[in-house]
């Protein structure tokens, strides 16, 4: 439904997006994840035909975006919730979109209700909206013409936890009815409960992509002992790498099995009180390595090669 093929964008000598390819299938929600400045928005704008790519191409429903006759009926976009005319009311904003798409204006109050903007809010000027309200209005605008796909840039920005949960249900319902969703975020925690697939981008390049299970199911282990120091020594002797977690446990992310770790502990006479797989180790490490706050960058890059 949405396909990017070798998308590349250079500004002068700076390559902002390099050879980005991925596909979004109907019925799925794809999270486009990466730190700020990784090239997410530029990629989404190239897909939406707003930024001409230096190389590569993108199609939506089998055609380049700019060749869709009435694009908003095929793919709803929200590329920047703050890019709205501050002087118009929520209703007026959507009425323009309705006219443009050729859908009856009776859809406007309907879709406003569905995103949780009440009549009072609808009559207010967008300039008085909070960012969260603008996100809701932007999503309403994208949904208004009843499209088959959605492209949303940082839609969770400015939403409170309740709002994020709301959006999750909304997008899940949309995908369950066969819709295709591509949304970007710079926060893993924000999207990991929403998306089916992840495309992770850093410094303009895709560093990992796959289903959530593939990417989150890593070999990382969390192990806690009554005597943490003794456990560290034992792991050092066994040559296993680990990180000291904030909660005092150790994160072992070196391909070691639980049995291996348990044996090492037993042989050293260390009492283990917790030993379990760390679901998120791989992706988090990868993500931290991209943002530059990494505690174990190497492991992150290992994961990227899984893709």
């Amino acid at each position: 439904m949405i396909e990017a093929q070798g998308l590349t964008k250079r500004y002068g000598s700076a390559t902002v997006v390099h050879d980005v390819s991925f596909t979004c299938e109907p019925g799925t929600i794809t999270g486009f994840l990466g730190p700020n400045g990784a090239g997410k928005s530029t990629t989404l704008r190239m897909i939406a035909g707003l930024t001409p790519p230096t190389a590569g191409s993108a199609t939506v429903a089998g055609r380049p975006f700019a060749q869709l006759p009435n694009p908003s009926r095929v793919v709803g976009t929200l590329l920047d919730a703050s890019a709205m005319h501050v002087g118009r009311t929520g209703t007026a904003t959507l009425q323009l979109a309705a006219t443009m798409a050729g859908v009856p204006s009776s859809r406007v109050p309907e879709v406003l209700r569905s995103v949780g903007l009440d009549e009072v809010a609808a009559k207010r000027r967008v300039g008085n909206y909070s960012l969260g309200m603008r996100q809701r209005l932007g999503i309403a605008q994208a949904l208004l013409p009843d499209p088959q796909a959605l492209i949303l840039d940082e839609p969770a920005n400015g939403l409170d936890p309740e709002g994020i949960a709301w959006m999750r249900r909304l997008l899940r319902g949309f995908a369950d009815r066969g819709g295709t969703v591509l949304l970007s975020s710079h926060l893993l925690a924000e999207v990991e409960a929403t998306v089916d697939r992840l495309v992770v981008i850093g410094h303009g390049r895709i560093v990992a992509q796959g289903s959530l299970d593939e990417l989150l199911g890593s070999s990382g282990l969390i192990v806690r002992a009554t005597d943490g120091r003794a456990l560290e020594r034992a792991l050092d002797e066994a040559g296993l790498r680990y990180v000291l977690r904030e909660d005092g446990a150790l994160g072992v992310d070196d391909g070691a099995t639980a049995e291996q770790v348990a044996r090492i502990a037993r042989n050293a006479g260390v009492l283990i009180v917790e030993l379990r797989p760390d679901d998120r180790a791989g992706l988090e490490d990868l993500f931290f390595s991209l943002t530059g706050h990494g505690h174990d960058a190497e492991t992150g890059i290992d994961v990227s090669e899984v893709a």
């Binding site: 109907p26 055609r63 009435n70 309907e110 569905s114 088959q148 909304l170 899940r172 949309f174 369950d176």
Partner: peptide
């Protein structure tokens, strides 16, 4: 899938993209 509480408008399997009239 959680049951969508909000009735989100999407008939995702709408008509295939044929020669749809432009604006």
């Amino acid at each position: 899938a959680t049951t969508a509480e909000q009735e989100a408008p999407a008939t995702a399997q709408a008509a295939p993209i044929g020669p749809r009239p432009g604006i």
